[in-house]
């Protein structure tokens, strides 16, 4: 990384850190406790941003996969792979935090509700994407196969997003868009979303950098073996 790149990286990390501290302050001190569900409702302020950033991550995989298949430029494949990795981490957290919330609110850890099931399918799809990347050793074949999976897998994202409108679900509806949040709750949620978006970009940038470094080492080794 050159000096300018390093400065940008540290600026983004600093911004992410400051936003995350602000988000935590707002979640635990600033925002009022929900009258109906109590303290456990505060899980919502991180659960929703994690889900949205998961969608963003898989959207980036979708776009980069299309770009890879049309341009055959390996840079798009690298970004798609980094984004899928972060997306799987965030979606895992969505499933776990949702489950903890469900236990407190509904008394059960899991139910085969449309949104929960669609999210689990989404998680399995992108875990499969990462497994394809891990087990297929030939570079162009791996990139091509994972790009196809990255495009096809994205079909589930709108299903997850619209599940609460399409089917009668136990999962809470679109309270954000229906104006179900008081301004302080909405503001807190927005700060959390911005904080997680910055975190997403920091992690994807770092993961992409490492994948490029890995490819460089592989290329040097191949040249030496020749």
């Amino acid at each position: 990384m050159d000096a300018k790149g390093a400065l940008k990286h540290y600026a983004l990390v600093g911004l992410g850190f400051a936003l995350m501290v602000a988000a935590l302050y707002m979640v635990f001190i600033y925002v009022p406790t929900d009258k109906n569900t109590g303290a456990v409702q505060r899980i919502f302020y991180f659960h929703v941003p994690l889900a949205w950033i998961g969608f963003l991550a898989f959207f980036v995989v979708f776009v980069c996969s299309i770009l890879y298949l049309t341009k055959r430029d390996v840079r798009w494949d690298t970004i798609a792979s980094a984004s899928a990795e972060v997306g799987v981490v965030f979606t895992s957290l969505v499933l776990i935090t949702g489950s903890v919330w469900a236990k407190a609110a509904w008394g059960i850890w899991w139910t085969w509700d449309a949104r929960l099931t669609a999210t689990l399918v989404l998680w399995f799809t992108y875990v499969a994407y990462l497994l394809v990347r891990h087990y297929v050793t030939e570079d162009s074949q791996r990139a091509r196969l994972s790009a196809v999976l990255g495009i096809v897998g994205f079909i589930d994202v709108p299903v997850v997003a619209l599940a609460v409108m399409l089917w009668r679900t136990q999962h809470p509806g679109a309270i954000i868009f229906e104006g179900g949040l008081v301004p302080s709750m909405l503001f807190t949620l927005i700060v959390c979303i911005v904080a997680f978006t910055v975190l997403y970009f920091v992690l994807v940038a770092q993961s992409t950098r490492l994948k490029n470094m890995e490819a460089d080492i592989r290329n040097i080794k191949d040249i030496r073996m020749d």
């Binding site: 406790t33 569900t37 109590g38 303290a39 456990v40 505060r42 899980i43 991180f46 659960h47 994690l50 981490v89 895992s92 957290l93 776990i96 935090t97 903890v100 919330w101 236990k103 407190a104 975190l199």
Partner: peptide, 19 residues
């Protein structure tokens, strides 16, 4: 605070996984 154990568990898991 009622249910604060679940809240604590959720945030602990989030930060453990992120870190």
């Amino acid at each position: 605070m009622e249910n604060s154990g679940y809240l604590f568990a959720a945030y602990t898991i989030i930060w453990a996984v992120v870190f």
